[in-house]
Structure formats: structure tokens, C-alpha cells
């Protein structure tokens, strides 16, 4: 019963084509590194040759196996308490991953929700949220985190909450900006004409369109969060010992650096660097990939 006589020819569905081409140029190196770290984190119990939290005081400061005095039993040597460095690195990956991801997601959810509310509702909601954000951003993140950590005391989950509280503002800023331009778009206006409530519009029309930016930001923030966690642990207000965290290992090993126990600092340092670098590379790639304007190029 079509009333227009013409037949409309649709292009062949492009979603399949673009999905394939989208996978084509994945940045392999950061993905492999992150996958290896995630693998270590998940299977730490199986992979680690020793208990990371107990060591034998008789076997302190053993160097990696290729140096004189090193043994194959402790491939990457032992620390000042005789704990196996490799095992601690493997379990440290778990701490970094858990802290990194949960903190980023926690901050992301809080920031995105508040950003959408501020941007879409405007008025006093916007004023209140953005003033808090401004004040928050004015505080030096690390000092603020130390301050919070000192109040609530060190524990892994406290660290997650602290990092989330410190970093949600970044999301709120970015998301609000995006919402401000989205809300002037005609599809939002048409949704109002269609009778949708504010909550529905925010959920159905705004949220899916800001999720991309939030994900990109999250990937970039992952690096920042891991470094902050390491810094907190290094300063002794992070993950409490004897739990193996990379930052904590760095901190414990720092006295040894002068007397040649380089593996206690260099190895966890490298792990942190690799993870942060991978997260940033992946974030950059995602940013270009998910931005339709940049994608055209």
C-alpha cells in the first residue's frame, strides 16, 4: 500500500563491513601488553612460583638468575624480606588491575551521571555540580588523595574509593560539555515533542551519545589512576603491606638502589610504565576511532 510509486534502494548494510574494517587496525602492542597483565592478574595463584607475602629471611636480596648469586628458584631475585620478586610482580598486577579498573569505572559512573545531570538540567543543578567540580579540580589530586587516605586509613578498597572521588570531576567536565551541545540537537527536541520525560531523554538519547567519550577518557585515566595508586603506595598511604602492589615494591626497594639492588625498583617501575603506556596508546587509538570526525581522515 505504499503510496509513493518509487522503489527505494538501500545501500548494502554497512554495519558488517565497518565492523570488520574497524577491527582491522587494532593497536596490537598495547592490547597484547594489557592482555598479558590481565592474564597474570587473573591466574596469579597458578602462575606465581612462591607466596608473595612470605619470604625466607635467609634468602634476602638474591639477584635475578643471570647475575652471580642468583638462582633459578627466584628468577627475578628476592627482596629485603626474602620474598620472590616475580611472584610479587604477578600478584601486584592483580592489585593494579583491580584498583585501576574499579577506580576508573567508579569515577566514570559518578562523573558521567553528574555531568549529564548538570548539562541537561542546567539551572541550579548545573551551578551546584559545576561549582563542586571546579573546587575539586583546584585541589592538587595527589595531595587530596593523601589527605583522604590519611583520614580513612589504608586499605585496597579505600584506595579505590579515594581515587574515584579524586578523579570523577574530569569525567563530569568532559561529559557536561558534550551534553550541552547534544541537548541543542534536533533529535533531543523531537524527543520532547514526542512526550519523553527528562529522565528518559537523558537515559535514551543523551547517555548513549556520551558513552564513547567517557570510555576514551576512562582508558586515558587508567594510566593516571595507576600512577596515583603507585604514588600513594610509594608514600605509604596506599595499599597496606604486605599486599604486593607495584608502587609499594618501588617504595620498599628504594633504599636498595644505592647499594646495587636495582631489580627491586627497576622491575616494578617497568611494569608500571608498560601498563600506563599501553593504556594511553589504547586510549589515543579509541579516541580517533570513536570520533566520527577524525575517523573520516
Amino acid at each position: 500500500m505504499s503510496m509513493s510509486s518509487e522503489t527505494i534502494v538501500l545501500p548494502p548494510s554497512v554495519s558488517t563491513r565497518s565492523a570488520a574494517s574497524r577491527l582491522g587496525d587494532l593497536p596490537m602492542i598495547p592490547i597484547i601488553i594489557l592482555a598479558v597483565i590481565a592474564f597474570m592478574a587473573i591466574f596469579a595463584d597458578v602462575l606465581a612460583p612462591h607466596n608473595p607475602e612470605v619470604g625466607a629471611l635467609t634468602a634476602r636480596f638474591k639477584p635475578p638468575f643471570w647475575q652471580t648469586g642468583g638462582t633459578m628458584d627466584h628468577i627475578l631475585g628476592t627482596d629485603q624480606l626474602g620474598r620472590d620478586v616475580l611472584s610479587r610482580l604477578i600478584f601486584g598486577a592483580r592489585v593494579s588491575m583491580v584498583v585501576g579498573f574499579t577506580a576508573v569505572i567508579f569515577a566514570g559512573v559518578v562523573g558521567t551521571v553528574l555531568g549529564i545531570l548538570a548539562g541537561y538540567l542546567g539551572g541550579w543543578a548545573d551551578q551546584v555540580i559545576m561549582r563542586i567540580t571546579d573546587a575539586w579540580l583546584a585541589l592538587p589530586a595527589l595531595t587530596f588523595a593523601i589527605f583522604l587516605a590519611a583520614i580513612v586509613g589504608p586499605s585496597m578498597w579505600n584506595i579505590v574509593i579515594i581515587l574515584g572521588l579524586v578523579y570523577w570531576t574530569r569525567y563530569a567536565r568532559v561529559v557536561r560539555g558534550e551534553v550541552l551541545s547534544l541537548k541543542e540537537r534536533e533529535f533531543v527536541r523531537l524527543a520532547i515533542v514526542a512526550g519523553c520525560s527528562k529522565a528518559t531523554i537523558m537515559r535514551r538519547h543523551i547517555l548513549p551519545n556520551v558513552v564513547n567519550s567517557a570510555i576514551v577518557l576512562a582508558t586515558l585515566m587508567l594510566g593516571v589512576v595507576i600512577v596515583t595508586e603507585a604514588s600513594l603506595s610509594f608514600l605509604g598511604v596506599g595499599v597496606p603491606p604486605p599486599k604486593p602492589a607495584w608502587g609499594l615494591m618501588l617504595s620498599d626497594g628504594k633504599q636498595g638502589l644505592m647499594v646495587g639492588y636495582w631489580w627491586l625498583t627497576v622491575l616494578p617501575g617497568c611494569c608500571i610504565m608498560l601498563m600506563v603506556l599501553s593504556a594511553n596508546l589504547l586510549g589515543d587509538w579509541l579516541r580517533v576511532k570513536l570520533d566520527p570526525q577524525l575517523r573520516q581522515l
Partner: peptide, 16 residues
């Protein structure tokens, strides 16, 4: 009372 606006690229939610 319903509406159709000018820009067909902005009138449809891109993710629906």
C-alpha cells in the same frame, strides 16, 4: 502536534 526539522542528520538519535 508533531514536528519535522531541517537537519535530517541531527534529527535522528545516532545510536538508536
Amino acid at each position: 502536534v508533531q514536528a519535522v526539522f531541517q537537519d535530517p542528520f541531527a534529527s535522528l538519535s545516532p545510536r538508536m
